[in-house]
Design a protein around this nucleic acid. Structure first.
Lengths: 138, 138, 138, 138
DNA sequence: GTGGTCTAGACCACC
DNA sequence: GTGGTCTAGACCACA
């Protein structure tokens, strides 16, 4: 009943392990691999698979809960939540724009052309089934 | 001869101070506000302006030097370097794509449409004088 | 003879399921929807309706009995009790004041005006048939 | 330079220790005892005073940061943030109303009169300097 | 069984 | 010095 996750932890990464878990679960939700109501692996189970401490997974789940990506019920498990993150929109909008600008700055310093960067960007957008007035446009 | 920097540090930001300095200098280079050969403020001078510890500025300059954004000459100061970051292109390519994807994931969770995200992205690209039209500028 | 309950369990809520059952029954008594002597559904019956574990309902009933909101008769069922919670009044007084103060603190951090908060409070009081006019009703 | 806190932890309470720390700091901010920019005690210092583990205090500080009550800077300390919690307003509005209603339900079961409950409520409001169009009205 | 809390003690990045 | 991350292992409430 529990989903099989395809999470990989890079110990050499500058990002903390719990953050990598958060990011990859958010990504899986965005890509449609995880859907509303699905149960996530238990804390202990995922900790075992990734050879991390259960506390570390617990921290990741707590952060996901706070972002309304999942909800957790002690004694029951952790589940993908319904999407309702209209909140904080103004704050997060800036975060997203910051990320895009940051990527553009780095691209400049690598002498990447706008055309190339655009191509990468469109490639990523293509992977998502956005809540799109664009419906079947791809 | 020394450039006047327009750097602002946000103490409440999640990013460490030295990282904010690095990012804003990289951004100014990318936007053309800082050009090859221009001298940066001394560590102590900039530390004074931003009311930061000189160690913090020193760390920022060291990172910029490592990324070949600036070069430092003992007894002379720090200067904007010529662009030659062809080096670890494949590594950085992935970093940029990661950033773009990360932004897209966050956008999904905010229920932002592809069209809107594309608009933001183009807006950012518009600010830069990218190599596309300046292929020979170095 | 058995009352039809209008209880809803929110799985995504931070409150445990048994607590939600307790709260809603207490609320229904306070609002006059449930009256002295009325029989509650059996544990199994309510568990079935709410798709919860009978243990969970059992725990809720046990807590309600302990608070003298209901009484249970072996072989007969659970019934709404007469009000006689004069007992640990001083203890509970503090609990209520704590709740009110907690709400006020949260309201402050949301920059809600006193007038607005007062309006909400009066709105809630209006729903109840308090003892003020029913002094002799028991 | 660091504020002296008047926090007390009740080990017998049903509330976890870290939650009690969060609540009391929020309360002190709301009551005006802690003001924008003030530095909080260090994690280790407060942990020592309350004979709790530094991790427990760290958890409390992290939660306060997420609620935008404070901001923390590794290597510098934790500070009271500027108020800007306009976000989540609709969500939190319901939380506050839930708390008020909960208190009213409990008061009913204690046979407290509306007048008495109102008196308590006004007593609490009196302690706060709300961002009030009521200015000096008290 | 589940997740949540807490402790003890380690190591790291940042200032 | 600061806070942040992580581990190991304990205990608790909930389902």
């Amino acid at each position: 009943m529990v989903v099989i996750m395809q999470i990989k932890i890079n110990n050499a990464s500058a990002w903390p392990a719990y953050q990598q878990v958060v990011d990859q679960i958010k990504r899986d939700v965005a890509l449609g691999r995880l859907k509303k109501g699905q149960q996530l692996p238990t804390v202990r189970q995922l900790a075992g698979e990734l050879t991390l401490n259960p506390n570390t997974i617990g921290k990741a789940y707590r952060q996901l809960e706070q972002e309304n990506i999942i909800y957790t019920r002690a004694g029951a498990g952790a589940f993908i939540a319904d999407i309702d993150n209209q909140l904080n929109k103004s704050v997060r909008r800036n975060l997203i724009i910051d990320q895009l600008e940051h990527a553009a700055v780095d691209a400049f310093h690598m002498q990447i052309t706008k055309a190339e960067l655009r191509k990468w960007f469109e490639g990523i957008l293509g992977e998502f089934n956005f809540n799109s007035k664009e419906g079947t446009s791809r």
